[in-house]
Simulated scan of single mutants.
Amino acid sequence: ALMFGEDIAQKGGVYTVTKGLHKSFKNKSVFKTLLDETIILGLAQGYANMGMLPIPEIQYLAYFHNACDQIRGEAASLQFFSNDQFRNPMVVRMAGLGYQKGFGGHFHNDNSLTALRDIPGLVVGCPSRGDDAVTMLRTLAALAKVDGRVSVFLEPIALYMTKDLHEAGDGQWLFPYPAPGQSMALGEGRVYAAEASDLVIFSYGNGLPMSLRAAREIESRRGWKVRVVDLRWLVPLNEAFIADQARDARRILVVDEGRHSAGVGEGVITAIVEAGLGATPLQRVVGADTYTPLAGAALAVLPAEADIVAAADNLEPIH
C-alpha cells in the first residue's frame, strides 16, 4: 500500500490525518507529491497497474475537478474497456464538504458531489463518525485489493475534530476504535432510533449530527418519535435500504448539504418514489445552487439545524 499527495508526508497533511506515517514507513510507502492533482491520480493508476494498492489524497474535494478525467475517463473505465483484463484498483482520499471554520471559500468548502455521482462503477463512502471512518476505509481497501474497484473516501473536514454532539464537553461523538478485522458492508447504513416512525430523516456527513440535534428539538416541540438514517454510502446509493427505512415513515425529511441541483438528496427521493412511497409527506433540506462564500457567509447557503426543524414544521404546521 502506498499513500501520497500534497503535504501528506512529513507534515502529515493539512489536517494532520496522516501524521506519523512518514516517520514509520519513510518515503518508500508515504511521500508527498507536486501540487498537481493530475499527477497524483496518474501516479495512482501506474502503481495500481503494477499490482500495488495506491491510496492517493486529493487535498480538497474542489481540487478533484482539476483532474476528474483521470478517474472518469481512465481509472474507472479500464475494467469496462478491457473486458476486465486490466484494473486500476485504488482508494482516493478526499477531504471536503462544508462547515469548515476559519478557512473558507469555494475551493476549501466544496459541497458538490455531482461529478463523483456521474462516474460508472465508482464507489463513494462518506463517514460521519470516527469508528465508521475506520471500518469504511478497511472495506474500500478490500474492494480495491480483491475486486479491483476504484473508490473515493470522502472525509468531512468539519467533523475531523468533533468530539461533542449536543453540548460542549458531552463527548457523545467519540467512539471506541474498531477491532482489527472489523469492517462495514458495502451499502450498509446506520440507523438511530430504529423503532421511531413519526418522522424519518435521511442524511450523511455533516448533516448526520445536525439531524440528530434537530431530532431532539423536534421530539421536544412536537412529541414525535424521530428516526435518523445515516446513508454512509453515497455511490451507489443502497436504494433497497432507503426504501426499507421509508416504508413505515409517517413523514420524511432528506437533509443534503450538497447543492440543490444534482445532489445526493435527489437520488434518495427517487429511491423513495420508485419504491411506491411517494405519497408520504416529504421535504428536502438542501444547500443552495452557488459556490460556497467566505467565512460566516457560507452558513447562508448551507443547511442548518434550524432549517431541519422548520422543514419538519412545514410537514405538519403547528396549530
Results as ranks from 00 to 15, higher is better:
residue 49 N to P: 00
residue 194 A to K: 11
residue 48 A to K: 08
residue 310 A to S: 12
residue 214 A to D: 01
residue 271 A to M: 10
residue 212 L to P: 01
residue 248 D to P: 00
residue 51 G to S: 07
residue 51 G to V: 07
residue 284 R to I: 01
residue 262 A to V: 13
residue 100 Q to I: 13
residue 15 Y to D: 04
residue 225 K to Y: 00
residue 86 F to W: 11
residue 46 G to T: 10
residue 303 P to F: 08
residue 80 F to A: 08
residue 99 Y to S: 04
residue 12 G to D: 04
residue 189 G to P: 13
residue 210 M to S: 11
residue 189 G to F: 01
residue 263 G to F: 04
residue 222 R to T: 04
residue 98 G to K: 06
residue 227 R to D: 06
residue 112 S to Q: 14
residue 76 A to K: 04
residue 267 G to W: 03
residue 174 L to F: 03
residue 129 R to K: 11
residue 57 E to M: 09
residue 141 A to L: 14
residue 91 V to S: 04
residue 278 G to T: 04
residue 209 P to T: 08
residue 60 Y to A: 08
residue 259 R to T: 11
residue 179 A to Y: 02
residue 55 I to C: 14
residue 100 Q to P: 00
residue 218 I to A: 05
residue 309 V to W: 02
residue 14 V to D: 07
residue 176 P to W: 07
residue 85 Q to S: 07
residue 148 G to H: 01
residue 123 V to Q: 05
residue 48 A to Q: 09
residue 219 E to A: 12
residue 52 M to I: 12
residue 290 T to D: 08
residue 68 C to N: 02
residue 246 A to W: 03
residue 259 R to A: 08
residue 314 N to Q: 14
residue 207 G to H: 05
residue 127 P to N: 12
residue 112 S to K: 07
residue 78 L to H: 00
residue 59 Q to W: 01
residue 168 A to K: 10
residue 219 E to P: 01
residue 83 N to Y: 10
residue 7 D to G: 03
residue 284 R to A: 01
residue 129 R to Y: 15
residue 16 T to P: 11
residue 32 K to D: 15
residue 267 G to I: 11
residue 290 T to S: 15
residue 1 A to W: 06
residue 16 T to M: 01
residue 297 A to E: 13
residue 59 Q to K: 11
residue 16 T to A: 10
residue 118 D to S: 15
residue 269 I to F: 00
residue 99 Y to E: 04
residue 286 V to K: 12
residue 226 V to R: 06
residue 16 T to L: 13
residue 158 A to T: 10
residue 124 V to W: 10
residue 289 D to Q: 13
residue 122 L to Q: 10
residue 286 V to G: 09
residue 153 F to N: 05
residue 317 P to R: 12
residue 269 I to Q: 13
residue 149 R to S: 06
residue 137 L to Y: 15
residue 48 A to F: 11
residue 119 I to T: 13
residue 199 L to H: 08
residue 19 K to W: 02
residue 266 E to D: 15
residue 252 I to H: 09
residue 262 A to P: 03
residue 277 L to N: 00
residue 39 I to A: 15
residue 115 A to R: 13
residue 85 Q to W: 05
residue 298 A to W: 00
residue 153 F to W: 05
residue 260 H to L: 15
residue 14 V to L: 14
residue 261 S to C: 05
residue 252 I to Q: 02
residue 73 G to M: 02
residue 300 A to S: 13
residue 145 K to F: 00
residue 281 P to C: 04
residue 66 N to C: 15
residue 281 P to T: 09
residue 247 R to T: 15
residue 91 V to E: 01
residue 293 P to M: 08
residue 7 D to T: 09
residue 12 G to R: 06
residue 73 G to L: 10
residue 71 I to T: 07
residue 22 H to T: 03
residue 80 F to G: 03
